[in-house]
């Protein structure tokens, strides 16, 4: 310990004679020694270790957040000072049919997309967990959708869903299905579907892109979980006569639960707040059938300049989500 402090105290020589430095309780050497014992105190160390995180989060997150909360209870418009209006904004948006539609959309979007991501992600994880050739290559390439910049991959989807050039319609036409679907009254024209222009289909398309983008993350995280499961458990169960489904249900799933809850929680929150995808694909159209909280908040707050109302929209679900997350985290903590 003393050896280590030596070079530091020599630095002190530059300003103070050594004897003086040693004599003073606040000399560098002494300070360092005190620091060392101080750092052994868990509470001190704790505070020091979380300090950088808190610093960044407070400066760049908490301040803007509280400003946002204030906005939501003010009548702030871009460039003009706002005044406190209580919960007025929340009543105003509740009164809007577009907002009510948005609430419904967001729940449908989050719910369906999450279920698909979970199921597909789990299925892919189970497949990738086996041993086969090109396993590694496949694992890496399955992650591709998750790593392309969202805006750009969504543009590729925009092109895939294009009303005129949709390659999906091209396939439907080539295999003769488009005409059949048209004759059955399912497709609006013999040229195929209007993917982003029919409310139900548009929502379906947007969800499909979200699933495409999000399920690899589920798959790879769950794959990690699968690898921690002791194969002997499965073998023992098999000897006891448990089928594949039963083994999955009674062994795999319960063991995956901790990671499943965390991943689900992250995914739901992120899906709930999704912005880029809808912003690029439909901007909330056709007639608001794909608007989500974030896109509507952007439209009201930024495009129409009503920052107060926009903030109210984006914070509308905050209390509910907050409660859900706190309960969920408490549950996870108790589990582990």
């Amino acid at each position: 310990m003393a050896k280590q402090t030596l070079p530091e105290s020599q630095v002190g020589v530059v300003s103070y004679p050594r004897e003086v430095a040693a004599a003073r309780p606040w000399s560098l050497a002494a300070l360092r020694r005190r620091l060392a014992t101080w750092l052994e105190d868990e509470r001190v160390l704790f505070v020091l270790l979380v300090a950088p995180t808190l610093l960044i989060l407070v400066a760049f997150l908490a301040i803007p957040f509280f400003w946002g909360v204030w906005l939501s209870v003010s009548d702030k418009v871009v460039g003009r000072p706002g005044a406190f209006v209580g919960l007025q904004n929340f009543f105003t948006i509740l009164d809007s049919s577009i907002f009510r539609r948005t609430v419904q959309n967001t729940f449908v979007y989050t719910g369906i997309a999450t279920i698909f991501k979970l199921v597909l992600g789990m299925a892919l994880a189970l497949l990738l967990n086996r041993h086969f050739r090109f396993n590694r290559l496949l694992r890496a390439s399955m992650l591709l959708p998750w790593i392309v910049p969202t805006v750009l991959s969504t543009l590729a989807w925009l092109w895939i869903f294009d009303a005129t050039y949709s390659v999906l319609n091209w396939i439907l036409r080539e295999i003769g299905l488009a005409r059949l679907l048209w004759q059955l009254g399912i497709a609006p024209s013999p040229r195929g579907f209007v993917w982003l222009g029919t409310p139900g289909l548009a929502m379906g398309s947007v969800i499909a892109v979200n699933v495409w983008r999000g399920f690899p993350f589920f798959a790879i995280t769950l794959l990690a979980g699968l690898q921690t499961i002791d194969p002997e458990l499965h073998e023992a169960a098999e000897i006891d006569g448990a089928g594949g489904w039963a083994r999955f249900w009674y062994i795999t799933l319960p063991l995956l639960r901790p990671i499943l809850t965390v991943v689900l929680l992250f995914s739901i929150i992120v899906t709930f707040a999704d912005f880029q995808l809808v912003y690029v694909l439909t901007r909330g159209g056709p007639h608001n059938s794909t608007h989500l909280f974030a896109t509507l908040a952007y439209q009201v707050g930024v495009i129409s300049g009503k920052l107060g109302q926009g903030a109210a929209i984006s914070l509308f679900m905050f209390p509910v989500l907050l409660l859900a997350v706190i309960l969920q985290l408490r549950y996870i903590r108790r589990e582990t």
Binding site: D162, A163, Y165, S189, W195, G197, T198, A202, R283
Partner: peptide
């Protein structure tokens, strides 16, 4: 009109015109 219009954005009719539809 072309039934696709409900989904069209600003760019769609340009492409449809070039596709001669």
């Amino acid at each position: 009109l072309d039934e696709g219009g409900l989904a069209w954005d600003d760019t769609s009719n340009n492409r449809a015109y070039f596709a001669e539809t």
